[in-house]
Design a protein around this nucleic acid. Structure first.
Lengths: 344, 344
DNA sequence: ATTGTGGATTTGATCGATCAAACTAATATG
DNA sequence: CATATTAGTTTGATCGATCAAATCCACAAT
């Protein structure tokens, strides 16, 4: 295995010094065009590639993002995180960035990992998913001045407009509002909401979307809405059970909107083909059984995350002193995918 | 942001040289126990962490595995790759290894990525998934002496016992054999096989499992089996259509075993609740609709991959000159998960 | 002819760790 | 007693790149 070429080898061949080679690579504008072309030819001829670790050691940058691989991907909705990961990796790749994975047993362990990877110059920044109320991870990252962006709004004490905390999120309110409004337009009146118990940032947000649409679009009273509003732990069995109980309680309903596809599938298995059901996440399951669902535009979320932290293009972190007016967060709108039920 | 401590700082505090600190970290057995303890105390006090890039520059090792993130294996079975990735990341983490992701537009592009990441000392070794006939990637990696392990047997010209090619795989033959045998034991006779067109390494392997079980366990003739053997592109709609055509052709069947959950779901939507169907991969969809399916033990696959390439423990690549008898491949056995249909 | 200016390029130092060789002191060998 | 031997530790060099400062050079202004 022949020794790999270095900047020096390239320089020797092109008749310039190592630094000029480095300049051609990093700041081409300072090199005279004809010199640059000669160096570029030498680079091509030797098939030179910069040594990533050497560069990182010197620059203290790694052009790498760290992201935790969620341990609890079981269940249908796991695919959301995975699809986000796909989109992120592809878009990062297009910018010359790498994505490094890690796992953690809990928030404290995750913080320990942050420290390790950041100190070792393994990663420049982190992408956090599944943020929750008063998340200790964001707190710690802010204190330690480590760049990061979250997929998910800060739900706790943290000011949503804190400029030190970048975030992208999907407007769950809008998703449920769209779904509910669509059903109302189709003539449904008593539309039930099958969601999760409070407090849950995303869950409460989605529920409000349904409630606002119902208040505006129907003449149902507050007690009516309260009766149609179900809150259970996420899961197919739980969704099914909740709808069964609703029916047994003698509360009539014409349609159901849900906080997840798991719940929606449960509902759907209970009510049969005649009651419209709309899920959330547009998972493969929804597609397979022909369930209408709300699609999160994860490519857009991933693109937003990268833009917030690295700017519109490139692989350098945004310098907030230089670009104080860069946007700090982004809310993307999901869209309703309408399908014809396939379960008979 | 205070300057991070280095080996020198630790040495100064412990009253030893930088090299001794390095030895404590890498070859503790050569350091006198009492010195070692003093150094360890200093490391703890300063919260010293070795700088990953500096170490990599010197050692030319990165303690990192590279794995390609499949381009949106949309559809239900995408979760297999993702589950494998989860298992791999967790097990790698336990050994102090990192997993780095990348994407590629095709085999040639993937080879270009191999080169970049390996030369830049970004990764020590690669894990390949979804190998296919005469895969050019394995060819290239072998030629360039870059360590790798594949999830999937070499299906082409490559000798399965080529010691330069490490692989782990799931015994698809056994999976289908188990499923078919189980159905025969339940009294089914005319069991159809819904699979993919040849040539397909995994597909052909699974089909053979079904055929062998049928030949041994029933008195069906070769023409019978040929009639019951369906080959279509993977997908819910395709599976459904294939079974519809089978019925229309007037070929009777009592049960169906499939090469994937997608096909199985399609079949299941066609035949209704009375015909037993068994899928493959045990995806969330299978769980949700109560479909029996063959589970691939992906944790075991991931563990196997790591053991082949890094030895039973540790984060150093196996040195084949030192350990010429290390195993070169591993075949793990899947198991049948039996469920009660939930689709009514 | 002298000095100044700015563009283009080169040189020396450095990032943090490990390797290879050298050194020290204590023990063993002939 | 002189010389190996060995365990434990230190010193010098190096990995490949980039930063900061120095140098070189052509050309203009005085």
């Amino acid at each position: 295995m022949a020794k790999l070429p270095t900047v020096l080898d390239v320089g020797l061949l092109a008749g310039v010094s190592r630094q000029t080679v480095s300049n051609v690579l990093n700041t081409p504008e300072v090199v005279k065009p004809e010199t640059r072309m000669r160096v570029e030819a030498a680079i091509a001829q030797l098939r030179y590639r910069p040594h990533a670790s050497a560069r990182r050691l010197r620059t203290r940058k790694s052009a790498t993002l760290g992201i935790r691989l969620d341990p609890m991907t079981n269940g249908i909705s796991g695919s959301v995180h995975d699809r986000f990961l796909h989109a992120l990796t592809e878009l990062a790749d297009a910018r010359g960035l790498r994505v490094m994975l890690f796992t953690a047993t809990g928030p404290e362990d995750e913080i320990r990992q942050f420290k390790r990877m950041h100190e070792g110059a393994d990663v420049d920044a982190f992408v956090l998913t599944s943020t929750f109320f008063d998340d200790p991870r964001t707190e710690w990252l802010i204190e330690n001045d480590i760049p990061f962006v979250t997929f998910g709004r800060p739900w706790g004490i943290d000011d949503m407009n804190d400029p030190r905390h970048l975030w992208v999120d999907v407007d769950g309110w809008s998703g449920l509002y769209q779904a509910t409004t669509e059903l109302i337009a189709q003539g449904e009146r008593r539309i039930a909401y099958l969601g999760w118990p409070s407090p849950s940032g995303t869950g409460d947000d989605r529920r409000r979307g349904w409630r606002d649409a119902m208040t505006e679009g129907t003449d149902l009273t507050v007690p009516d809405l309260d009766a149609l509003q179900l809150a259970v732990i996420d899961g197919v069995a739980q969704g099914r059970e909740a709808i069964r109980e609703l029916g047994e309680a003698g509360i009539p309903f014409d349609a159901i909107v849900c906080a997840s596809d798991s719940l929606a599938l449960g509902a759907l298995l209970m009510v049969g083909p005649d009651v419209p059901v709309i899920g959330y996440d547009n998972t493969p399951v929804a597609e397979a059984v022909g369930l209408s669902s709300i699609e999160q535009p994860l490519e857009e979320v991933a693109a937003g995350a990268l833009e917030l932290i690295m700017g519109a293009a490139g692989s350098e972190l945004v310098d907030w002193d230089v670009a104080p007016d860069s946007p700090r967060h982004r809310l993307v709108t999901p869209r309703l995918i309408t399908r014809n039920r396939r379960i008979t």
